[in-house]
Amino acid sequence: MKKISTCASFFAGVGGIDLGFESTGRFKTIYANEYDPSPVTTFRQNFKDANIECKDIKDVEPDDFQNVDVMMAGFPCQAFSIAGYRKGFEDEKGRGTLFFEFLRLVKAKNPRVVFLENVKNLISHNGGNTFRVIREALEDAGYKVIYRVMNAMEYGNTPQNRERIYILGFRFEADYRNFKFPDPIPLTRKITDIIDFQHPVAEKYYYTPGKYKGDIYERLNDEMDDPDTVYQWRRVYVRKNQSNVVPTLTANMGEGGHNVPLVRVPSGIRKLTPKECFNAQGFPNDFCLPEGLKDSKLYKQAGNSVCEAVIERIAEKIAYALDENVASRIVCPSCDKEIELESTNTICYCPFCGHRIQE
């Protein structure tokens, strides 16, 4: 039986990254941290065994959780997103610098793998300088870094146009060498697999004359002429998705109808339900959305989350890389840290405490 690797999750949201890792059967989240109490409610309902703390990551101390094999973070992307203000590290709300709070904990715990997810624009923000700082900070902490921009509809067989950058740091050279990102796969799932075009839903999801300020309904009624695709109201105009997939979900979908994907169905013009938005992220049908939470909260949770299917495919490759490197590792008898043995020498020194090890 292969080892189950332990994980600690930060900026955990509803647990999309955790779900992708756990779906492989090779990883288990034992600790999670999230600042917003709304997604914490959803996380707790779906991860009964994980200890999730609802507090600012700045208040998390290394002793708050045990050593783990993997530390992962979908750190806040608003400061880098094309859809946001793109202020990066200078974001007035401090969201751009929260990566360094995560790095503080990584340096203290020295996990075998670091996993990060963020918006595609991170790689080009500020002329590439923001990403360079992040990559070099991980390298300075002792990690070999590899990254790739991946689209959910190309790598997750999920009909959503969602490009994200995935960054991995490996503490061991052999793990790094053994890891390969998954290849693209055909998109066989259709929007009809995740959106119910046939049956009526609750009245609150429909657009009707006079429901919203201005002539939004009239504009939608005039321009939404294709019942087999997804549209989006973008502040002042209607956008049709030409790829016949769901457009990129955003965190502000629940704010006055802006950015919510829309469909024309026999019963009228309506927005996607929160459940359908989670479907568009590749979440399984049995993923629970807590009763009593406002739709605006659920839309935000879905938009802030990740494509679960892409995460799962990456996690499978991580598990394979770790399996391949079993023979070249040992636990230091002095400090109990796991280290990599030199393949050409039976004597090495622990990089953490300097203890001389001879096999």
Rank of each mutant, 00 (worst) to 15 (best):
K3M: 12
K3H: 14
A8I: 08
A8L: 07
F10D: 04
F10K: 05
V14I: 15
V14N: 08
V14S: 14
L19C: 10
F21R: 03
E22G: 03
S23T: 05
T24S: 06
T24D: 05
T24H: 02
G25Y: 07
R26Q: 10
N33G: 07
N33Q: 15
D36C: 00
P39L: 01
T42R: 11
R44Q: 15
Q45P: 02
A50R: 03
N51Y: 05
N51E: 06
N51Q: 07
I52R: 08
I52L: 11
D56C: 01
D63V: 10
D64E: 06
Q66C: 12
N67I: 10
P76E: 07
Q78H: 11
A79M: 03
A83F: 00
R86G: 13
F89S: 09
E90V: 03
D91R: 14
R95W: 11
L98H: 14
F99M: 09
F100G: 03
L103A: 01
R104P: 12
V106N: 03
N110W: 07
F115M: 12
E117S: 11
E117F: 08
V119W: 03
K120W: 01
I123K: 13
I123R: 04
S124C: 09
H125A: 14
N129Q: 14
F131C: 02
V133Q: 09
V133T: 13
I134G: 04
R135C: 02
E136G: 01
E136V: 06
D140S: 14
A141H: 05
N151T: 12
M153C: 15
E154Y: 04
G156V: 11
P159Y: 04
Q160L: 00
E163R: 11
R164D: 07
R164T: 05
F170A: 10
F172R: 02
E173Y: 13
A174V: 02
D175M: 07
D175H: 06
R177H: 13
R177L: 14
F181L: 08
P184R: 14
I185T: 10
R189Y: 04
D193W: 01
I195W: 00
D196H: 00
K204A: 04
Y206Q: 12
Y207K: 00
G210Q: 06
K211N: 05
K211M: 01
Y212H: 14
D215L: 10
I216C: 04
R219H: 11
L220C: 13
D225G: 09
W233Q: 03
R234M: 15
R239P: 01
K240F: 02
N241A: 02
Q242A: 12
P247C: 13
A251S: 15
H258G: 09
P261R: 00
P261M: 05
I269L: 13
T273Q: 04
P274H: 09
E276I: 00
C277N: 08
C277D: 10
C277V: 09
G282R: 04
N285D: 15
N285C: 05
D286I: 06
D286T: 08
E291C: 05
G292K: 05
L293P: 09
D295G: 00
K297Q: 12
Y299G: 07
G303K: 10
N304K: 04
R313L: 07
R313H: 08
N325C: 15
S328F: 11
S334L: 10
K337Q: 13
E338T: 13
E338G: 00
I339M: 09
E340W: 13
E342M: 15
E342W: 09
C348Y: 12
C350P: 03
F352S: 03
C353N: 03
H355V: 04
R356G: 06
I357K: 08
